[in-house]
Simulated assay, not measured.
Amino acid sequence: MTKVDFVNMLYSFMFLLLENYGVRKLEAVFAVLISTMALSFAWMFADTKPSGKELLIGLLVPKLSSRTIRQAVGVVGCVIMPHNVFLHSALVQSRKIDPNKKGQVQEAINYYGIESSVALLVSFMINLFVTTVFAKGFYGSKQADGIGLVNAGQYLQEKYGGGLFPILYIWGIGLLAAGQSSTITGTYAGQFIMGGFLNLRLKKSLRALITRSCAILPTIMVALVFNKSDSSLDVLNEWLNVLQSIQIPFALIPLLTLVSKEQVMGVFKIGPALERVAWTVAGLVIVINGYLLLDFFLSEVNGLLFGFLVCAGTAAYVSFIVYLISHSGSELSNWLSQLFSKGNA
């Protein structure tokens, strides 16, 4: 076990202890870490002085080459992390609201909507700051291919210098906050999910010890396998973000299904217009993931056995998504049903 693995494991259990002091304390820790990230990366963004015009054009008319599609999908996974859907659902349940009082429920929904929107906006801005800083300094340069998490701070320091506060330290503070925020969100999301599925009737501390121990062991194994070079860890990190994006439909489709059903949400189900927009966005994410899988298949798959495994995995992935959509009761599921019925006719 490396020192980093041990520290992360220690932090995981420390964060779980926060639950004994109430969910609000936990949310306060989230707020501090995210604020630290946002301020650090915003400071970097201001120090580098990127072109506002080029940034606006890039936001409104994004251009991607086939070489950058994996990074783009990874950014989607960073912003819309699927495990945060479950984490937010668990945190929402911690608030005491009388479900029989429509006014209280509607007020809570409004505030939860604002909270989720702000969280996604902050996450988007953090990714925007980081991407812009590195794009301005290193896009198209010889150093671009050699930059990773390990040496990024040194490259930033050499490119942008010290200033009032060395950018190397600003990057380090932001990266540390990002790592701890990721640790705590992943830890608690996994804890809530495993606790819910297993329905363990144990003390919180003992339950956390069992579930987290089961989750940490595979993490340590992966870290040991990829802990061969700095570049391999960067590749692992990149593919982990891509994996998050690929997993989004498994969290998003059931969520859209539930919030669209009157028997579940009652009068608070989402309207037809919002439902169409939500399913359109979900469809775009699925299409992007499909393109990534196709690109991976064409560029990386070599050998009959590996090709067969990738094809089987892709077919299972697509089939499960189609299954989820077909049982969602949405307009899209009705369209799929009609399509299959015509095919069988």
Rank of each mutant, 00 (worst) to 15 (best):
residue 1 M to T: 09
residue 6 F to Q: 14
residue 7 V to W: 09
residue 9 M to V: 06
residue 10 L to F: 15
residue 14 M to N: 08
residue 15 F to V: 00
residue 16 L to Y: 02
residue 22 G to T: 08
residue 22 G to C: 06
residue 27 E to G: 01
residue 28 A to K: 01
residue 29 V to T: 08
residue 31 A to D: 12
residue 32 V to S: 02
residue 32 V to W: 05
residue 32 V to E: 07
residue 36 T to P: 04
residue 42 A to S: 08
residue 43 W to G: 04
residue 44 M to K: 10
residue 45 F to D: 03
residue 45 F to K: 03
residue 46 A to C: 09
residue 47 D to W: 13
residue 47 D to F: 15
residue 47 D to N: 15
residue 48 T to C: 02
residue 50 P to C: 01
residue 51 S to F: 04
residue 54 E to P: 01
residue 55 L to I: 12
residue 57 I to E: 03
residue 65 S to V: 11
residue 70 R to V: 14
residue 70 R to N: 15
residue 71 Q to H: 12
residue 74 G to P: 04
residue 76 V to T: 15
residue 78 C to N: 10
residue 79 V to R: 00
residue 80 I to E: 02
residue 84 N to G: 03
residue 87 L to G: 05
residue 94 S to E: 14
residue 102 K to M: 14
residue 105 V to M: 12
residue 106 Q to K: 14
residue 107 E to W: 10
residue 111 Y to Q: 12
residue 111 Y to E: 09
residue 112 Y to C: 09
residue 112 Y to V: 11
residue 112 Y to E: 09
residue 121 L to V: 12
residue 125 M to Q: 08
residue 128 L to E: 09
residue 128 L to C: 06
residue 135 A to H: 10
residue 135 A to W: 02
residue 139 Y to T: 14
residue 141 S to K: 07
residue 142 K to T: 14
residue 144 A to S: 13
residue 144 A to C: 08
residue 152 A to C: 06
residue 152 A to P: 11
residue 155 Y to P: 10
residue 155 Y to H: 15
residue 156 L to V: 07
residue 157 Q to Y: 13
residue 163 G to P: 02
residue 164 L to Q: 11
residue 165 F to D: 07
residue 173 I to T: 09
residue 174 G to D: 03
residue 176 L to R: 05
residue 176 L to Y: 00
residue 177 A to R: 00
residue 179 G to E: 09
residue 182 S to P: 06
residue 182 S to Y: 01
residue 187 T to I: 01
residue 188 Y to L: 13
residue 191 Q to C: 11
residue 191 Q to A: 10
residue 200 L to N: 02
residue 202 L to G: 09
residue 205 S to W: 12
residue 206 L to C: 07
residue 209 L to Q: 00
residue 210 I to G: 05
residue 214 C to F: 15
residue 217 L to I: 13
residue 218 P to V: 00
residue 220 I to G: 05
residue 221 M to L: 14
residue 223 A to V: 15
residue 223 A to M: 11
residue 225 V to K: 05
residue 233 L to N: 10
residue 234 D to N: 07
residue 236 L to M: 05
residue 236 L to C: 08
residue 238 E to V: 02
residue 239 W to A: 03
residue 241 N to W: 12
residue 242 V to I: 07
residue 246 I to V: 07
residue 254 P to K: 00
residue 261 K to D: 04
residue 262 E to G: 03
residue 266 G to D: 04
residue 273 A to L: 15
residue 276 R to V: 12
residue 280 T to G: 03
residue 284 L to N: 05
residue 285 V to A: 02
residue 285 V to Q: 03
residue 286 I to T: 00
residue 288 I to E: 05
residue 289 N to K: 06
residue 289 N to E: 09
residue 290 G to E: 03
residue 296 F to S: 09
residue 296 F to H: 04
residue 297 F to N: 14
residue 298 L to N: 12
residue 301 V to L: 01
residue 302 N to C: 08
residue 305 L to I: 12
residue 306 F to H: 05
residue 307 G to V: 02
residue 308 F to S: 02
residue 308 F to W: 06
residue 311 C to W: 13
residue 312 A to G: 00
residue 312 A to F: 08
residue 316 A to L: 12
residue 321 I to R: 00
residue 325 I to G: 06
residue 326 S to L: 06
residue 328 S to Y: 04
residue 331 E to A: 11
residue 334 N to G: 09
residue 334 N to K: 10
residue 335 W to A: 10
residue 335 W to E: 07
residue 340 F to I: 06
residue 341 S to F: 07
residue 342 K to I: 10
residue 342 K to V: 06
residue 345 A to M: 10
